[in-house]
Design a protein around this nucleic acid. Structure first.
Length: 433
DNA sequence: TCTCATT
């Protein structure tokens, strides 16, 4: 750790920072009223990601645990957009940066919340400055090697921030691990030094050391798995297309019932269903439960809403969820979702046919986001009825993403239908057939 | 042989 040569000033933070700037706030500045009604956070505060939270715990339950380290500016449990289901993780911002650091070192991997099989995760959120280029995937480990063995192996290459051996629920190693270094250089050095360098006892081939998948790659892989599994299965018995908005729960329930009733052959479906939260898309929203535009009462909270459940969010096309476009004189025949209505460059635009009836812009975006930057997504809607025409388009900012999306999603089976995903033809393309 | 989730 050399002192910075050349005597250059620090790039930011010129000297000690004043705790407050009351410049033009109009708030009393005499210090007589030190307890602000609205909590303020330091400008260098860190947003933390908190993982391995029991699904039963909400913000109020979690607050005491975290308050121990400082004043909380914001704490949000992540919930599924469509179903409102607890995702088992949260974002946490303290007013002070220091509190976040303290919480991280005191809690991260240090304790396990009730009912969880793995320790709590407390670390800067992905949005706080990336760093996936420092994380390595290590394959072809021996089954008997634990975290300590892996650490010993990688220690010579730098500071190890995280080291996790992947295990089955029963605790046996899956023969692979993640190792996160303090810097990209260290990670690269470890790849150079270790990949293929030896064969661990009990492994079938030489050690694998490479950069771990990015989140995007992971999402893509899952999507492909899902497509493959759903495509291979003909779900005649599933009343797809006629269930409720609370997809995940319902789908899981049905899949579980089916699996139980019909034996192990359908077990996969349950696994697939369990992964479908982020593609809630295929959300099989209940036609009968949703009002048609004609009889919807705007602002009424949704006549079709299920009693006792929160109103579904992001379900578009019906009821009051896209009120600003419903029947507005100026509205187009497609939803105004804030994205550019104009297609991207040639080769970047996809047409998607055979969408579920209740599938809207939001679901479309969500479904195709894993393949790249979506610059535009529209479901076409019948002006008169406000009903989806069951086709739409998605535009990416580059042709590769578009091709990837076609590969992964064309033929994706939903209910009795399969999605048709193809490049938008330059002209003459608006015909479903 | 890619966790476990990232508004």
């Amino acid at each position: 750790m050399a002192a910075a040569p050349g005597g250059s000033a620090p790039p930011s933070g010129p000297g000690p920072r004043l705790a407050f700037s009351t410049a033009d706030s109009g708030i009393g500045m005499s210090g007589l009223n030190p307890g602000p009604a609205v909590p303020m956070k330091d400008h260098d505060a860190i947003k933390l990601f908190v993982g391995q939270i029991p699904r039963g715990l909400d913000e109020q339950d979690l607050k005491p645990l975290f308050e121990e380290f400082g004043h909380i500016y914001e704490l949000t449990v992540l919930k599924d957009r469509l179903t409102g289901l607890h995702k088992g993780c949260a974002f946490l911002t303290y007013c002070a940066r220091d509190s976040a650091l303290k919480a991280q070192s005191a809690l991260h991997e240090q304790k396990t919340l009730p009912g969880m099989s793995r320790p709590i995760q407390v670390k800067p959120a992905a949005s706080e400055g990336r760093g996936e280029d420092r994380k390595l995937f290590v394959g072809m480990l021996g089954k008997q090697q634990g975290e300590e063995d892996v650490r010993r192996l990688f220690q010579p290459f730098g500071h190890i921030e995280e080291c996790t051996v992947l295990r089955s629920p029963d605790g046996t190693s899956k023969g692979c691990a993640f190792v996160k270094f303090g810097s990209q250089g260290e990670a690269q050095a470890a790849i150079q030094g270790l990949h293929g360098s030896r064969t661990m006892t009990g492994a079938s081939s030489s050690l694998v050391v490479k950069l771990a998948d990015t989140d995007r790659e992971r999402a893509l892989r899952r999507m492909q798995q899902m497509a493959g599994q759903l495509g291979a299965f003909h779900p005649a018995p599933l009343p797809l297309g006629a269930c409720g908005a609370y997809t995940t729960a319902i789908l899981q329930h049905q899949a579980a019932l089916l699996a139980a009733a019909q034996g192990p052959g359908l077990g996969q479906v349950a696994a697939v269903a369990a992964q479908m939260q982020h593609v809630a898309a295929f959300s099989l929203v209940a036609a009968p439960l949703l009002p048609t535009a004609a009889n919807a009462s705007p602002g009424g909270g949704g006549p079709g809403a299920l009693p006792g459940l929160p109103a579904p969010m992001g379900v578009n096309g019906f009821g009051s969820l896209t009120p600003q476009t419903n029947g507005q004189p100026g509205s187009d025949s497609i939803y105004n979702n804030g994205l550019s209505p104009y297609p991207g460059p040639e080769g970047c635009n996809l047409f998607i046919y055979h969408l579920p009836q209740e599938f809207g812009d939001a679901e479309l975006i969500q479904t195709f986001l894993p393949f790249g930057a979506v610059v535009s997504a529209k479901v076409f809607v019948d002006r008169a009825t406000n009903q989806s025409k069951c086709f739409g388009f998605v535009s990416f900012d580059n042709p590769t993403s578009a091709q990837t999306a076609i590969q992964a999603m064309n033929g994706f089976q939903i209910g009795m239908k399969r999605l048709k995903v193809q490049l938008k033809r330059p002209k003459d393309a608006n015909r479903p057939y």
